[in-house]
């Protein structure tokens, strides 16, 4: 989970953000759909996977991203 949170902080260019599993991407972090689409590129780089263009838009919380990545067995 920590690595997912760090990627989001890095993407938003703010290490001070308080992010946990329950943090909501749009409501709490103010991320637009376009930014979510872009955020998927960061996960692609980190975990060598591919997202569909708008796959990320459906995620509402940090834990949903984590579960999705876990299901794709990206974590060691």
């Amino acid at each position: 989970m920590d690595s997912v949170i760090n990627i989001i902080k890095h993407f938003l260019q703010n290490d001070e953000l308080e992010i946990n599993a329950d943090t909501r991407l749009a409501e709490d972090l103010g991320m637009s759909s376009f930014e979510l689409m872009e955020l998927s590129c960061e996960f692609e780089d980190e975990y060598d996977i591919k997202f569909q263009t708008d796959e990320m838009i459906n995620f509402q919380s940090v834990s949903q991203i984590y579960e999705f990545l876990k299901a794709r067995a990206v974590f060691e």
């Binding site: 938003l12 260019q13 103010g30 637009s32 376009f34 930014e35």
Partner: peptide, 13 residues
């Protein structure tokens, strides 16, 4: 619209 929203979000942050 999405790019404009992104720019505004970045300004707000």
């Amino acid at each position: 619209k999405a790019l404009l929203a992104k720019a505004q979000q970045m300004l707000e942050r």
